[in-house]
Computed example of a mutant assay.
Amino acid sequence: MIRTAVLGAGRIGQVHASAVAASRLAQLVVVVDPFEEAAKSLAERIGCEAATDPLEVIARDDIDAVIIGTPTDTHVHLMLKAVEAGKAVLCEKPVDLDIAKVDEALRQLEDKDVPVMLAFNRRFDPSAAAMRQAIDAGEIGDVHQVVITSRDPGMPPEGYVQASGGIFRDMTIHDFDMARWLLGEEPTEVLATASRLVSPDLVEKYDDYDTVMVVMRTASGKQCHINNSRKAVYGYDQRMEVFGSNGMLLNDNLRPSTLRRYNQDQTEVHDPLLNFFLERYDDAFRAELEAFFGAVGSGKPVPVTPYDGRQALHLANCALESVRTGKVVKV
């Protein structure tokens, strides 16, 4: 059993703590949060220790792995401290909002023989994983186009908007990672457009956007189109399409059930979409942790690296530059 500490008792920390507690490969030893009541509340609910000092927990001899679900500006510091202590790390995205800081962290990790995985959970969604497997099996021939739609059910709180680094770095960054993964090549050109349509006053206050589209191209000519919105009134809209020389793969939205209703007034009436990422990607979070613990236990490479996080952040920065200049940006 891999003895694990979860750093952060907020929303994502609670997700990880619950998944670790349910894992057959790991033991949740402690949850850590500077807000003592938050740590205690989560620890009591799950059945583990609570602590307030992450560095003290990282240094403990009874901890083998650390999951970092703390605010973004703490990720690099905690990651490097854990690696120095010989602890395996699963870190939430992004590594940092400053790509120079990310590059320096990657440089420091180069000669360290400690597993460090970045938490791009959508790769582990069962439907997305099946899509990647179908591509690898040649079911649709050569990939030509990837189309990704990701729309949230509503604007996040103002505090989140203020600290997120902007829609490209906190929301589209998942789609940049999925694009790289599904295309099988690095994008070399980025063209983006962005608008303030959902909450103009709020996003303008923080020089951000709430509605964006991105078009990317690889060196071989493969294309990707991403579209995001902070507010879809019908729910959490998550769809992906991969078009190839011999066919197409479509990853559609999930609903609570597959039941459809027909009557004299309506046909094809479905249940609403799953409400938010916690429900939509519950299986993905669990599979992500199992992949992490599996790599740690077997000594095999982790499936998602800090470099993947660096590349997704770089694409986010290129998209923002494209919005501000109105030009195609070379990656």
Score class of each variant (00 low, 15 high):
residue 39 A to H: 07
residue 30 V to R: 01
residue 64 D to W: 05
residue 57 V to C: 07
residue 39 A to G: 05
residue 24 R to L: 14
residue 44 E to P: 09
residue 68 I to A: 11
residue 3 R to K: 15
residue 15 V to M: 10
residue 28 L to A: 02
residue 67 I to N: 08
residue 34 P to F: 01
residue 49 E to W: 02
residue 33 D to H: 03
residue 50 A to I: 02
residue 51 A to K: 02
residue 26 A to E: 02
residue 43 A to Q: 07
residue 58 I to D: 01
residue 12 I to L: 14
residue 37 E to N: 07
residue 69 G to D: 13
residue 56 E to H: 12
residue 16 H to M: 15
residue 58 I to F: 11
residue 10 G to T: 05
residue 40 K to I: 02
residue 46 I to S: 03
residue 53 D to E: 06
residue 65 A to G: 10
residue 60 R to E: 04
residue 36 E to K: 11
residue 75 H to M: 10
residue 6 V to I: 03
residue 38 A to F: 09
residue 42 L to T: 03
residue 7 L to H: 11
residue 24 R to H: 14
residue 18 S to T: 13
residue 54 P to R: 11
residue 49 E to M: 09
residue 21 A to S: 14
residue 54 P to N: 09
residue 65 A to D: 03
residue 69 G to H: 09
residue 50 A to G: 10
residue 72 T to C: 11
residue 20 V to Y: 04
residue 37 E to M: 06
residue 36 E to Q: 11
residue 69 G to P: 11
residue 60 R to W: 08
residue 40 K to Y: 04
residue 25 L to T: 13
residue 2 I to T: 12
residue 52 T to S: 06
residue 51 A to S: 13
residue 2 I to Q: 10
residue 35 F to R: 14
residue 75 H to A: 08
residue 36 E to A: 06
residue 38 A to T: 07
residue 44 E to D: 15
residue 75 H to C: 11
residue 11 R to W: 07
residue 48 C to T: 12
residue 40 K to E: 08
residue 9 A to S: 14
residue 41 S to E: 10
residue 15 V to T: 15
residue 49 E to S: 06
residue 49 E to P: 00
residue 76 V to Q: 06
residue 55 L to N: 15
residue 11 R to H: 12
residue 72 T to D: 01
residue 15 V to I: 15
residue 60 R to N: 00
residue 21 A to F: 02
residue 67 I to M: 09
residue 28 L to P: 07
residue 17 A to H: 08
residue 19 A to P: 03
residue 11 R to T: 13
residue 38 A to H: 13
residue 47 G to K: 11
residue 15 V to G: 08
residue 32 V to R: 08
residue 22 A to L: 10
residue 20 V to Q: 03
residue 30 V to S: 04
residue 3 R to T: 12
residue 72 T to M: 14
residue 36 E to P: 00
residue 16 H to C: 04
residue 63 I to L: 04
residue 26 A to C: 10
residue 75 H to S: 05
residue 51 A to R: 03
residue 35 F to E: 09
residue 30 V to G: 02
residue 77 H to R: 15
residue 43 A to L: 02
residue 9 A to K: 05
residue 20 V to E: 04
residue 19 A to K: 11
residue 40 K to L: 04
residue 48 C to F: 05
residue 68 I to E: 11
residue 11 R to G: 06
residue 15 V to S: 14
residue 43 A to F: 04
residue 36 E to W: 00
residue 11 R to D: 11
residue 77 H to A: 15
residue 49 E to N: 08
residue 13 G to F: 09
residue 74 T to K: 12
residue 53 D to M: 03
residue 40 K to S: 01
residue 64 D to G: 00
residue 70 T to R: 05
residue 10 G to M: 02
residue 62 D to I: 13
